[in-house]
Simulated scan of single mutants.
Amino acid sequence: MRSNNSLNPSYFSFALFSDYGSLRSLFFSLCLLIYMTIISANVVIILTVCLDKSLHQPMYIFICCLCLNSLYGSAGFFPRFLMDILSDTHFISRPFCFVQMYIVHTYAGNELTLLTVMAYDRLIAICQPLYYYSKMTLRLVMQLLIFAVLYPICFLGYFFYLSTTLTFCGNKLQRIFCTNWSVVQLSCEDTTVNNITGQFVALASIFAPLFFVLYTYLQIVIICRKSSSEFRGKALQTCLPHVLTIVNFCISVICELSLSRYNADEVNPLIIALLSLEFLIIPPISNPLVYGLSLPQIRGVIFKFVKIQ
């Protein structure tokens, strides 16, 4: 009989990492530069919104929280990833694997709910401008932010709990970080409940918010069609960064979900690595750049601060 340890290993191994040889330092430096860029770009937006009183408005508060979430998700991936690049072994303890899984998945869930809340904010600002400040009070903003954080946790918490109770027959993960599906695939048990729960979680935490975003923009388009060209120009200016962020994040989510639909042995490891990195690198870098460069209010404050220095 196999021992209990072989049936339920206390650690997992990332099988996609390989020996980079002389290129190891180059890859490490490149990834460290990307991580530092993510931190710097998001911190600039956060400090800009926090320090300038003219930006203490709902839209900019939501942008600030979006950047905070990018820092949260990056912190759950990059430190460990940088260690793995330099290491000859790529083992991760079972508890830390589930912690990383929780951070990465809640980062994605928070990102989508924050973008949904921002869509509601744009809906009120464009369709009901006279009632905007009476509706989007500080209290409502805080309630929406709490909702954006708790909504994905409520669904993902039970989902991850089911995964932690499984018994595993293997420990090789065909990924460069821990994901729920890659871990569940190693289970010796029937995972039907996990699969059904996963479909429900995907419906509630991904597709439901996206349908609401589509609804808000349908209402905005209807209002814009009935309005003047000047009004449409202002609406486009405020909505374009959000639309770009939504499209970019949806592409990232599609890439990530597509990985769970195929057997890892049938996909080129480089493609798996690139799609995984796209999910965790592109949105955290593009969000501060899109909002920092597209919104004149934020761009003006940043340029003013740079000139003062």
Score class of each variant (00 low, 15 high):
124 I>G: 04
148 A>G: 04
193 V>L: 15
284 P>Y: 07
39 I>D: 09
110 N>G: 08
291 Y>I: 00
228 S>F: 03
276 S>L: 06
12 F>E: 10
92 I>D: 00
227 S>L: 07
61 I>G: 04
170 G>W: 02
145 L>I: 06
274 L>Y: 06
220 I>D: 03
212 F>N: 08
60 Y>S: 04
193 V>T: 09
213 V>C: 12
227 S>H: 05
245 T>F: 06
68 L>M: 06
184 V>N: 10
63 I>R: 01
117 V>R: 03
145 L>R: 13
159 F>C: 12
280 L>K: 14
181 W>H: 06
22 S>I: 09
149 V>K: 14
61 I>N: 13
82 L>V: 00
272 I>T: 00
46 I>A: 01
215 Y>T: 07
236 L>K: 08
200 F>C: 14
143 Q>N: 05
213 V>Q: 15
279 F>Q: 01
212 F>C: 13
150 L>A: 08
75 A>F: 07
13 S>D: 12
294 S>F: 11
201 V>Y: 01
137 T>F: 10
284 P>M: 07
145 L>C: 02
307 K>D: 09
273 A>N: 10
103 I>A: 09
94 R>P: 00
184 V>C: 13
178 C>R: 09
28 F>T: 00
12 F>S: 07
122 R>G: 00
214 L>W: 06
170 G>P: 05
8 N>H: 03
210 L>D: 05
36 M>E: 00
148 A>F: 11
101 M>K: 03
64 C>P: 03
142 M>G: 10
249 F>E: 08
48 T>C: 07
126 I>Q: 05
302 I>R: 11
110 N>L: 13
208 A>N: 04
11 Y>M: 13
279 F>C: 11
156 L>K: 13
77 F>T: 01
253 V>F: 15
28 F>G: 08
111 E>R: 15
100 Q>I: 00
206 I>V: 02
175 R>S: 15
308 I>R: 14
61 I>P: 05
38 I>W: 04
81 F>I: 01
13 S>G: 05
8 N>C: 00
299 R>Q: 11
188 C>F: 05
209 P>L: 01
195 N>G: 02
37 T>I: 07
211 F>M: 10
229 S>T: 04
167 T>W: 12
57 Q>S: 06
273 A>C: 10
299 R>I: 00
292 G>W: 08
40 S>K: 11
102 Y>A: 15
219 Q>W: 03
290 V>P: 08
89 T>I: 05
